[in-house]
Nucleic acid binder design. Sequence first.
DNA 1: ACTGATGTTAGTACCAACTACTAAATGAGG
DNA 2: CCTCATTTAGTAGTTGGTACTAACATCAGT
Lengths: 193, 193
Amino acid sequence: MARYKKKERQELLLEKVSTDPFLTDEKLSEVFEVSIQTIRLDRLELNIPELRERIKHVAREETEKIRSLSLQEVIGEIIDIELNDHALSLFIVEDGHVFQKNKITRGHYLFAQANSLCVAVIDEPLALTKSADIEFTRASKLGDKVISKAVVEKMDGHTAIITVTSRVEQKLVFKGRFEMYYTDETDEGEKNG
Amino acid sequence: MARYKKKERQELLLEKVSTDPFLTDEKLSEVFEVSIQTIRLDRLELNIPELRERIKHVAREETEKIRSLSLQEVIGEIIDIELNDHALSLFIVEDGHVFQKNKITRGHYLFAQANSLCVAVIDEPLALTKSADIEFTRASKLGDKVISKAVVEKMDGHTAIITVTSRVEQKLVFKGRFEMYYTDETDEGEKNG
DNA sequence: ACTGATGTTAGTACCAACTACTAAATGAGG
DNA sequence: CCTCATTTAGTAGTTGGTACTAACATCAGT
């Protein structure tokens, strides 16, 4: 076994550790067929924290993600809003949002952005989507910054009509017409949101 | 400080540890104003693993979640499929899918289930949603098992028409008519998915 | 007030997976 | 062959525990 040279080993080490943070120095020393001390020197030079810190980091990241997701309650970040009138949100297409083979955004994320924006723009305790007419006009891709605009066209009784357009660099990728049901009661059981 | 009684303390301990898994025995012993040994006895009785195991568990859970999410590529689990004809999927409404205040499912998850099912039922390398007409007929709630059925009505050239109905205990919660674009090329840039 | 059960605390030895440090062995290049 | 970089070995100390033994505290019932 012509073990790797220092530089090469360190590059591979970085990769190994980032793909599987659960590896002990001992396991790594077996993988690379060097002593534990060498692995430790490598980690020191590369500023790779020890196993426990790596695991803690992963765990922290994820509990934070969960928190921010449940806090967010919206896909995309709202950048401008006038209640019962209009709202804008930004959604950046990330790795989890696309088909792996062609990096095209899955339609339901664009729908989710639009749908969330409709819920947000209505200034009532309960707002649920009753129906929608939607169209995907062009493909958006990984890394795209999608700006979605919701405009409230009509509000009467308990129904609002909202049109949404989503664009990437001015080009329309999605448009829809949403019919929303709303009420000032905080719970209700006949429609969906 | 009239420290808690054993039973009470153990209940609070369970809660504490599950909301914040990052607490050491030492910190916990300070919180409850008992000795470290007492905390350790409590953990032993309640089968609460040690700090490191708890952290590891959180980290593992999350890396698995990420993997299964990217593997899944579908919201809901497909339970029956005949390509280019029909498909069924099951989606169980969990905590992250509902509005916190009233536990009603966010519409875009039901849309996502339907949309994913449409993508899955088409036996071509690329299938993207072109447009959809959807309706949310009743609210579904936390814990509901949503069965979605997609039926391919028509396929010609590069367009398929699929109708989807989603039910909870036979009762219709969602229906939609999806127009899908499909092709045997693996990449394409004019439509959305 | 005495006894026994239950609960709490103290203390020891040991473990994994390290850090930080010193020192020796090995290797490869000029 | 010498030298500098690299690798390995070994020791002491750390964190956050387990596992175990033993002592002490508290209260309940008789």
